[in-house]
Design a protein around this nucleic acid. Structure first.
Lengths: 280, 280
DNA sequence: GAGTGGTCTAGACCACCGC
DNA sequence: CGGTGGTCTAGACCACTCC
């Protein structure tokens, strides 16, 4: 669409001008009848998105919010609304006290292959944290078919990819699924977690089903994922079926900003999803 | 946790009090040292979430934002931050000009069974809309292994569950995948879409892989999904492999607020995910 | 301490829905 | 038309990070 002509930068990085390319000028001549006036933050998001494509590279830091807002002639809250959307789409990364940087493309994270495996099988991507005995949330208890006040083993694991934490998981395992824990000395910690998973793997896994939904990070997950509480996450719930019943339930919380969950036979689908260009 | 004692309502629905149960009083005696003062909107979200559980039923409408803000003694923007989170988590539904209502639990939406099938196979959940010939976005072109400026068939479909639109899809099919379209008269529309899919189904499907990521609704998708532009969506990208190459790519946009995507052997996992009670 | 993003306020006006 | 949520403003202060 844009011809090969020299373009004014959408954002003057170094120098501070009164305002850079006022929004009112719109992007080129939109020729659109003002039937439905788009919100400012939406325009802004589009302009910023294009600027990110053409004028910034991954990891580069943007001007701060106050500057950007002034340059575009909008209130900071309005600018922030645009930045929030871009962050939600994985285009930006913001860190308090540091600044806003251009995010790398989302990484593909494999979530379960066709062949069914128990958690903790060789070569899986998870790192054991610890293990405790506690009453699960009622929704999980129902799936496990345990009494609402019955304690189960809860194994915490975390997943790191490319040196970055991407997911935190809670694995709920009823005592009935791991009947013989006599060989395990450790009362808690990674050693015990390892032991519990080893016992679990003795069962024959019949099937597993999974669901994915949007959620927001609880305080503890947020901390582990190096995000603020409330950050958007993809919650992957897996039910492991063995011997006719639910042997375990896993609730894994993935960073929605940096992760693209991949399923299926081969590796990841290599389509980097650019929201502004999805249509034909 | 809450004993069987009579509780003050967290929200007085009918009557307007100066403010209902000030936030400062916190939820019961939290006994927590004020080491890390939680943001107001986070407290608010918790309180509202509990109120939704105990005092409201699905479909019930909440007091309007100005009232609620006044009752809790916060600015409307702060209240809205809490409501936004609850909407993101699928607990609330807000409609401009109407009000805020309590959302039903997210519906499980099956996204592909273990056995691979072409889109348009008998009994799939999609409804054909139309078909056009156009140049796909570059990311899709790369996955299809077509030239960047090569036109492909683009079939639009939509998915309705329980009378509600849940997803909009764009199916990209290179001309090479459907070599013989001679039997199809219609130049466009649902009839042509049907014909193109029928041709596609003649190929042997070898495998398919899928990815899921968070996105925000484009204007046209938003309209079809009955949401505002920018609404959070789960973008499911599927690559269909046949005869050693990519025969088609599907980009499906699901409403993140109302849908829980389910995968796997059996039906849906029946864990309704309540974010506030995920931990033990 | 200086600079960043995160939270919060108290207003205002607009777009939309139903009556 | 009145009432709803959606957008926007111009401030303020706070929490955090880095120097």
């Amino acid at each position: 669409m844009v011809a090969g002509i020299v373009q004014e930068p959408l954002i003057n990085k170094g120098v501070k001008s009164r305002r850079d390319t006022a929004i009112a000028e719109d992007t080129v001549g939109t020729t659109q009848l003002d039937t439905v006036p788009e919100p400012k933050y939406w325009h802004l998001k589009t302009v910023l998105s294009e600027a990110l494509d053409s004028e910034f590279s991954v990891g580069e830091i943007l001007p701060n919010e106050r500057d950007l807002a002034a340059r575009f002639g909008v209130a900071r809250a309005t600018l922030r609304q645009a930045l929030e959307q871009l962050e939600l789409e994985g285009r930006l990364q913001r860190r308090r006290g540091v600044g806003t940087t251009v995010a790398p493309p989302r990484m593909g994270v494999a979530v379960g292959s066709e062949q069914h495996t128990w958690p903790g099988a060789v070569g899986d991507a998870w790192q054991l944290a610890d293990c405790a005995l506690a009453v699960p949330p009622s929704a999980v208890a129902k799936a496990l078919e345990t009494e609402p006040d019955e304690q189960v083993h809860i194994v915490r694991r975390s997943r790191v990819t490319h040196g970055q934490p991407v997911a935190a998981e809670l694995l709920y395992i009823p005592a009935a699924s791991v009947p013989d824990l006599s060989g395990i000395d450790a009362p808690s910690g990674a050693a015990r977690a390892r032991g519990v998973l080893r016992e679990l793997q003795r069962l024959g896994l019949e099937s597993q089903d999974r669901s994915v939904e949007l959620g927001s990070a609880r305080a503890d997950d947020a901390k582990e994922l190096d995000r603020l509480p409330g950050a958007p996450v993809l919650v992957v719930t897996t039910r492991f079926v063995a011997e006719g019943g639910t042997a375990a339930v896993s609730v894994a919380t993935y960073r929605a900003d940096t992760c693209r969950l991949t399923f299926g036979d081969a590796g990841g689908v290599e389509i980097h999803h650019d929201p502004e260009r999805r249509a034909s």
